[in-house]
């Protein structure tokens, strides 16, 4: 095994962080390290945290870190913020809410930018979570960007997905229900110090009931992440545990593992094919020209390029 992989398995933060950077930047040699790490992964409990922009996701994660640390667990966090489509830059600010854990060696927080990837995560998020898993963090929390309704990729990566909303969103909750409600394993109504929390809970219950009787149960927890001590967090931890326990019968666990493996493999495969397609396209300026001058239609041109791709 490479020294790099060995250091990461021993929990070395500097080496792990650098590998995350190489993965994020798409360096091929980083994938070789991942190959070596993979057999040692699959031990961490992966918790997804998603929800409306500004709902308090990072603040909830901060309090969860505190509770899990008190239980003696080591916690890794991947926090994703959007890349500006105009500048290509990003301000990664989720960490601000978690900085009190910065010098705790049992906590590793990594901020990522989406870099144009849709789905609420960066392309590298799964790989970075895998590195944290390999480094021995017991719990890996993935905070997505503030979501609309199509940004639900985290479900494919997490054992349990928590959706954070706030009171008084009214119509907005209606708007997000289609996508977001269906992915929630646990629903959080954060900022319950605000008016309308109970209304929101009732509203969410009604919407959950519309899913029918055979739908899996979803617990709703009211929290105030900013109060001292934070309110509702013990309930949230219990709800997460109950969800996890429900899904941990042997057959459920196996099904979930397979589902995740499929998503993971699909991601890698799509990524490779997309890169190969981009390269093949770059190698065929002639075809581009022919399509531009309408001598050739894009469908036939794509057929030609695809044939070169599929040849060994």
């Amino acid at each position: 095994m490479s020294t790099r992989a060995a250091r990461i398995l021993a929990g070395d933060q500097r080496t792990g962080a650098r590998l995350m950077r190489d993965l994020d930047d798409g360096l091929p040699e980083a994938i070789e390290v991942q190959k070596a790490l993979f057999p040692s992964t699959g031990r961490a409990f992966v918790l997804g945290v998603t929800g409306n922009p500004g709902a308090g996701k990072s603040t909830v994660v901060d309090v969860l870190i505190e509770r899990y640390r008190r239980q003696g667990k080591r916690v890794g966090v991947v926090a994703v913020d959007p890349t500006s489509p105009f500048s290509g830059g990003a301000i990664l600010g989720d960490r601000i809410r978690m900085q009190r854990h910065a010098t705790d060696d049992g906590v590793f927080i990594r901020s990522l930018a989406t870099r144009g990837h849709l789905g609420g995560l960066s392309r590298s998020t799964g790989d970075v979570a895998l590195v944290l898993d390999a480094m021995g963090y017991d719990i890996v929390i993935i905070e997505t960007v503030g979501v609309g309704q199509d940004e639900i990729e985290v479900v494919g990566q997490a054992d349990t997905t928590v959706v954070v909303t706030v009171p008084g969103l009214g119509d907005e909750i209606q708007a997000i229900k289609a996508g977001i409600l269906e992915i929630a394993d646990v629903l959080v109504v954060n900022k319950s110090d605000r008016e309308g929390a109970d209304n929101s809970v009732r509203h969410l219950i009604t919407m959950l009931e519309l899913r029918g009787h055979d739908a899996t149960p979803v617990e709703i927890v009211k929290t105030v992440a900013t109060s001292h001590p934070a309110q509702g967090i013990d309930d949230l931890i219990l709800a997460i545990e109950r969800h996890h326990a429900r899904g941990s019968s042997a057959s459920d666990a196996a099904a979930r593992k397979k589902k995740r493996a499929r998503a993971q493999l699909g991601d890698v495969l799509h990524d490779r094919l997309r890169r190969a397609a981009d390269a093949a396209l770059a190698a065929h300026p002639d075809l581009v020209e022919q399509v531009a001058s309408r001598q050739l239609d894009p469908y036939s041109a794509a057929d030609t390029i695809a044939r070169t791709l599929l040849k060994p």
């Binding site: 890349t83 500006s84 500048s87 290509g88 830059g89 990003a90 301000i91 990664l92 600010g93 960490r95 601000i96 900085q99 910065a102 901020s111 930018a113």
Partner: peptide
């Protein structure tokens, strides 16, 4: 932080 992100960098801001 804003200016650096406008220049295309990823800026981790810790407050």
């Amino acid at each position: 932080a804003r200016a650096l992100s406008d220049a295309g960098y990823e800026v981790v801001y810790t407050g």
